[in-house]
Design a protein around this nucleic acid. Structure first.
Lengths: 349, 349
DNA sequence: TTGAAAGCGCTAACAG
DNA sequence: CTGTTAGCGCTTTCAA
């Protein structure tokens, strides 16, 4: 097929071992022979076969990235962060989406054996038990935004609860007395945390207000649905907080299409601060999640685990990143806000 | 490390050959032994080592995807299209970004040897000569939106020239007498085609008008720069056509921030129809590029090349996909337009 | 139907 | 400093 290390050795009149040595920078080679080998490699346009190499070394220099989906700005940002960190370390990325159910996730997981040195996993199905059952050997793993690590696996996430809590606080402080919430997909850990934050904050800041929870699933269509329904109502909450930006935007467009003014008639807030949030009118008040940074950090942790040689047992470090409120026009606050970036959580590492 | 085929063979009291046979569905195995082996595999939680397998078979079931960047909605869409098509065929994706210069692109290209069965390449540097020089062996390759295949490689792209031409036609038909253009990066093939379309259309529809070409590079900042500069001018074109959406949006925001009305004072149009284009106010008139479909088609072509066994020589098929004008509010047309999706090119395949 | 054995391309002792 | 050689985990003739 291609030119192999043997061809090079032969052409350079040396053994494959010597070629291998210059390939790997083992200094124990005469400058003379090294030069000769290098010349031959160039002449033959030799490219080492990494697959073969990794069979020997048990190292692939690639990490697997398992995401629930490859679509949308959230994942785009995530991959960007991961890719930057990976290339900085000379690592390659094997990405796969997980949109099937648990079976498919299991398959994806197992098929990574021998292809990667470690895994970055973001999946609703990826709880500790599931991973333990399907992970080939004890591959280093870092979980992304999945509360299910259970301490068994390292994880990187943000404090969804506190951020949601703070957002409701902001809405209440802005004078809204009834605040609704659009949920994420039922099984989603992050969505649950955000809902929990909403409930806690409501109880704390507006103890006499009633909860108004609308079902959603993180898609724009869900937001549209809620927005349309809300537009038809006579009585609606003064503000609606969506568990993510896409739903908030869907609701906003639906409301506006129905002639309801945002934020005049109803204030809106989202979560994630995806790039579009700045471009809609009015611009969306939201929680800035440092998506790319999360990805980068997760890859860093994974690289460290890999370097540590997979021993060190399960590095169960759980990183939590700061999130910030980003107040824009859609939340219609009455009182001016000192800064548009209010730190929510103080914890780090 | 993990449990190997040997372990399974031993535990099942058979040879590795038999295990391999059931692994690959070679029917020449007794139902009895097959069952026994299957049971042992399950019990031992055996997962075949694909790396080792591909060393034997010279097949990886993986395709490499080389993109100039992993950031933004354009690439997100592209990856989505590719991923969908890949998973449908049981193929995995090894993605890498190329943001460095030619050297880095070369490295990325060579490092794919032994990892992938074929390559999807979208890169400014990837002209035919460059590929020929850096491709390990004669790997199947499909070029994305790079005019540089030169017939030597299969390619998938859209007709940028015609689409740009049609957009300028639309702007002229809408009553705009002077039309400016914001260019993409200097070396970019697609950007050049769009500029060429602009020029040709200008000559055809507004022969007495002067060209007004502003330099850009596909980033929002470039658009901002142009928009800001334009806002300061006393005389400005009645319409500006940006070589992509992000620049159009940057210009729009800058103009609006400076108090210039869009489309009242100046009309705007973009190219790509990235998701955000619908969300800005006024919504952006643009050219819909079926990004995900392009990715899917490209992967399909690649899979076909791979299946054809890399012989069949260079499948130099050049696919061109249809693009459509999407007329929204930003272009300020005076006359109503029959449909908001006007086919531009009729060619296919 | 099954097993033994020769690789796939490369690395890493172990001897010289 | 350099060459020999035994694997890495799996597939695949070739015999039995």
């Amino acid at each position: 097929m291609g030119v192999t290390i043997k061809d090079v050795a032969q052409a350079a009149n040396v053994s494959v071992a010597s070629v291998s040595r210059v390939l790997n920078g083992h200094s124990t080679v005469t400058d003379d022979t090294r030069a000769r080998i290098l010349a031959v490699m160039k002449a033959l346009r030799y490219v080492p076969h990494v697959g073969a190499r990794s069979l020997s070394t048990n190292l692939t220099d690639t990490v697997g990235v398992l995401l629930p989906d490859l679509y949308g700005e959230y994942f785009s940002e995530m991959i960007r962060g991961i890719d930057g960190a990976a290339r900085r370390r000379g690592l390659h990325l094997l990405v796969a989406s997980l949109h099937g159910g648990a079976d498919e996730a299991a398959t994806a997981l197992r098929t990574m054996r021998g292809r990667v040195d470690g895994l970055l996993v973001m999946s609703p199905h990826a709880d500790a038990a599931f991973l333990a059952d399907n992970l080939p050997g004890q591959l280093p793993v870092v979980l992304l935004n999945s509360g299910a690590g259970g301490g068994a696996y390292a994880s990187v996430s943000i404090d969804n609860f506190s951020a949601a809590y703070a957002m409701v606080g902001h809405l209440a402080a802005s004078g809204h007395r009834s605040i609704g919430f659009i949920t994420g997909p039922a099984g989603n850990f992050e969505a649950q945390e955000r809902l929990r934050g909403y409930r806690a904050a409501l109880a704390a800041f507006l103890p006499r207000a009633r909860e108004a929870v609308y079902e959603g699933d993180f898609t724009e269509e869900a937001g549209t649905r809620v927005g349309t329904a809300l537009a038809r109502r006579k009585r609606r909450p003064g503000a609606v907080f969506a568990a993510n930006d896409m739903m908030a935007i869907g609701a906003q467009l639906a409301l506006q299409a129905a002639g309801v003014d945002v934020p005049g008639d109803i204030a809106l807030a989202g979560f994630d601060d995806i790039p579009v949030a700045r471009y809609v009118t009015p611009a969306l008040t939201t929680v800035r999640v440092p998506i790319a940074e999360m990805g980068a950090l997760a890859l860093g942790r994974l690289a460290a685990q890999i370097a540590a040689g997979a021993h060190g047992g399960h590095g169960a470090a759980a990183d939590t990143l700061d999130a910030h409120l980003v107040v824009r026009a859609s939340s219609g606050q009455r009182a001016p806000v000192p800064s548009n970036r209010i730190p929510i959580t103080g914890d780090r590492q």
